[in-house]
């Protein structure tokens, strides 16, 4: 009893009012989700979710978010590598520039993409004139918009992981006969795997939820550019029950990503 008393006294030595504020904070984050689940049209959920329009939006969302994530990994890992390792002047400026999309309102990102890749854009006009390629309002535009907004998450988390790698392990590998690419594949990448996994999950989640840049740069064409978030927004105008059903799907997907993130992250942190 004494021991428990001591423990309890120590646990409650917290600034007065802090637990109350913490409870408010938790409620603020959790209650909207509770409302979503509470008001879900459970009875007609199955019918709603097998609706061809919904399935089309879901398929498009998964395909474009996966592609954007793959693109982010392929380009983001080398970018993180250079940011973490290279000794170049102006590297700090570069780091600041490539992380701008993290804080930029996505709709501004969409406008910026249009100004680069739109039919009259800096690069887009030549794509159109020389190759007859028009990017805006295509599925490719969706992928580009999502990758633009989501890739910084991958870069930031992989760069952090790379900074934590003991370079002497790479030195040891080099003396064992491993060239730079071999060291990167067999030593460095495995060492940053937890960070890479976390970054990939965050990137995928962010790409899946992308709205502002997508609607600006790719529009909302059912079957081509209308991803789940766009479909939800449109459904909310005239069929709230459909919007709720679609939202549940995204919520479930996000929860899955979070679980995957924890399971791959937590054991790695322990070891």
């Amino acid at each position: 009893m004494t021991a428990a008393g001591v423990t309890r006294r120590r646990r409650t030595r917290m600034p007065r009012g802090m637990p109350l504020l913490a409870a408010l904070g938790a409620a603020f984050l959790v209650l909207p989700l509770v409302a979503l689940v509470w008001r879900a049209p459970w009875g007609e959920l199955a019918a709603r979710l097998t609706d061809p329009t919904t399935l089309e939006a879901l398929r498009l969302s998964l395909v474009s978010a996966s592609t954007a994530t793959a693109l982010s990994v392929v380009l983001g890992v080398p970018l993180a590598w250079v940011l973490a390792r290279a000794a170049l002047p102006g590297l700090r400026v570069l780091r600041a520039l490539v992380t701008v999309p993290l804080v930029l309102p996505p709709v501004v990102g969409g406008v910026a993409l249009l100004l680069l890749l739109g039919r009259r854009g800096l690069a887009g006009q030549y794509l159109d004139a020389w190759f007859g390629v028009q990017i805006p309002f295509t599925t490719l535009a969706v992928v580009i918009a999502e990758a633009f907004v989501a890739m910084p998450f991958l870069v930031v988390s992989v760069e952090g992981a790379l900074r934590g790698v003991d370079r002497r392990a790479e030195d040891a590998a080099a003396t064992l006969g491993a060239g730079p690419w071999y060291v990167a594949r067999r030593v460095t990448l495995p060492a940053v795997a937890p960070g890479l996994a976390a970054g990939t999950a965050l990137t995928f989640a962010r790409a899946l939820g992308e709205f502002g840049a997508t609607i600006t740069f790719a529009g909302s064409l059912p079957g081509t550019t209308q991803t789940m978030p766009l479909a939800i927004y449109l459904a909310m105008q005239n069929d709230p029950a459909a919007a709720i059903a679609l939202s549940l799907v995204l919520l479930a997907t996000s929860a899955t990503v979070l679980v995957a993130l924890r399971e791959r992250w937590v054991p790695a942190v322990r070891s």
Partner: peptide, 12 residues
């Protein structure tokens, strides 16, 4: 061959 005081084995 290089050996450090902390073994620096590849953890994976």
């Amino acid at each position: 061959g290089l050996v450090f005081s902390d073994h620096l084995l590849f953890g994976h």
